[in-house]
Write a protein that binds this DNA or RNA. Structure first.
Lengths: 157, 157
DNA sequence: ACATGACAGTCAGTTAATTGGACTGTCAAT
DNA sequence: ATTGACAGTCCAATTAACTGACTGTCATGT
């Protein structure tokens, strides 16, 4: 009785996604702790990582949507990160209700460490599979996200 | 200035994974609530989903490893699910230290609902991309997980 | 037999994360 | 001016998660 089906075809996709994400999460967290940034809360990784991209700072509302948490949660998370010196909050000039979150010096440093860890995994992955696979994977995941969006949007009853 | 790079190539892979997983999570949770199973804790989805596969029941230790949480946490999670009627705990005959967790009637029902929701997403995904992409995606994710494992195992200092 | 150590889970106490609902200040359009 | 929508915050409560110490079970060596 030979096992012909590889394990990754037998497991449910959500679990596969979960484990894959863990790879990044663990590596990034580990690198941050090594570098002395050991006071970053769970979702903080996504805040800092996300802000590194949007260099000019990100409105809090967008953060809320991206994290998919209640706004209170996001607010408190940012609060924590501000009090620990990673973020700064500034009022938007256009609309004074809106807050813009930016990285501080320390925040940038942490983001760099985290980004390096991520890049290390990315590189290892790029070495393990070919570029086409990687690109298809991204596209497939995007399709999956798109499905989620279209499911949620119209039904919402 | 034309934006040639699709958004899914610009975003960091961890974030992409996170969002993709959310699609499943939201759909499954929604389906469960619709069907009256509205008292399942967060990680409960993975417990119930996972047990559906291992039909004969799963040792608690394996659950702990799969969930990636402290054993106390897993124990409490199972506890909750037992008290709400989804799971049953039985002592392993071979080794009486070991507990085996199985689905109850209600647990099976919930697992079916959840499985159907997952299958619905799977089907939508299969329709959106071609089979080869799907397979490559699985393989790529598996490679990613493998990287995580090999990173953690030897370093652990 | 019977120590000894490894292992599977639980118990108790604590901290962090997340949420819901009511509230304040700001904008946009009458 | 007034009204309604919007961006965030405050307060209170719940849930999730972890640490460290403890109980019962197995496996081994003497």
């Amino acid at each position: 009785m030979i096992e012909e089906v590889p394990w990754y075809d037998a497991i449910a996709l959500p679990a596969l996604l979960r484990h894959a994400r863990t790879t990044y999460g663990a590596a990034m967290r580990h690198a941050l702790v090594e570098a002395g940034y050991d006071d970053i809360p769970k979702n903080g990784l996504y805040v800092i990582g996300g802000l590194a991209l949007g260099a000019g700072g990100v409105p809090l509302g967008q953060l809320i949507r991206e994290l998919g948490v209640a706004k209170q949660t996001a607010g408190q998370l940012v609060d924590t990160l501000v009090s620990r010196g990673y973020l700064a909050r500034t009022v938007d000039g256009e609309d004074r209700r809106r807050l813009t979150v930016t990285l501080t010096e320390r925040g940038h440093a942490a983001a760099a460490v985290q980004g390096a860890a991520r890049a290390r995994i990315d590189a290892a992955l790029a070495a393990a599979v070919d570029a086409g696979d990687l690109r298809r994977t991204r596209r497939t995941l995007a399709a999956l996200i798109e499905i989620g969006r279209s499911e949620r949007a119209p039904a919402e009853h």
